[in-house]
Amino acid sequence: MIEFSHVYKTYPGPVHALKNIDLKIDKGEFVFLTGPSGAGKTTLFKMISAYDVATSGGVNVAGYDLAEIKDGQIPFYRRKIGVIFQDFKLLKDRTIFENVALPLQIRGDKTPAIQRRVYEVLEQVGLAHKHDQYPEFVSGGEQQRTAIARAIIHQPGVLIADEPTGNLDPRLSEEIMDLLERVCSQGTTVFVATHDHEMVKRRRKRTLELKEGMIVGDTK
C-alpha cells in the first residue's frame, strides 16, 4: 500500500532530510514511525500526502506513483488517503457534522448519502450526540475524534497521522489509539508518527525508527 524505494530528499543548503529510504507497508497494516525532532518524519509524511517530491527514488502509495503524479491528479489522489494532524485542523465556524461532511461534499456526494454516512462515522467515533456542536466547545479528545472521523469518512486506503496524540493527556491518547486500531481492523493502512515511546511499546505494533533521515530500526 505504501512503498518507498531508495528515496532521497535533499533541500537547498544542502540539507539531506531523507537518505536511502526503503520501506513497504502492506494493506491493513498498523505502523508507528518514531524518531527525534528533525529526523525526517514530517518530510516522509509530506511525500506520502503529495506535498513534496523525492529528489530521487520511487514513492508508490495506494497505486499512485508519486514521483510521476501530475498536479491535476493530486487532489484526486488525496481523496484516497486520510490525514490527521496534531492540532486537529478543524474549521471553527462549522459544526462537527459540517467538518466531518467536508470530504464527501468535495467528492460531490448527494446530501442524503452524506447525512447517512456522517452519522454512521460519528457513531463509530462516539460523537453522534455532539453533531451540532462547534469544535471550540468540545474537549481536545473530541476534537481529535472529529478529525479522525473526517479523515476516515471517505474510507481511505491509507490513513496517516502526524503526532495525533501530541496535544492530549494519556487517557485521551489511549482512546485515540484504540480508535485508530479499530479503523485499521476495517482494512485501512494506518501510519502514525509519534514521540510517545511508552505507548508504542504498549501497543506492540510494527515500528519504524527514523534518525538523521535514515531508517535505523524496523520491528517487522
Binding site: 500526502s49 491535476g72 487532489p75 484526486f76 489522489y77 488525496r78 481523496r79 490525514v83 485542523k89 478543524l90 474549521l91 471553527k92 467536508l102 470530504p103 468535495i106 467528492r107 473526517r150
Partner: peptide, 15 residues
C-alpha cells in the same frame, strides 16, 4: 485554515 483543510481533503485548486 480553511484553505489548508480543503487542500488536504482533496479539493481542486478551482474548488
Amino acid at each position: 485554515d480553511e484553505i489548508v483543510v480543503l487542500e488536504m481533503i482533496g479539493a481542486t485548486t478551482s474548488m
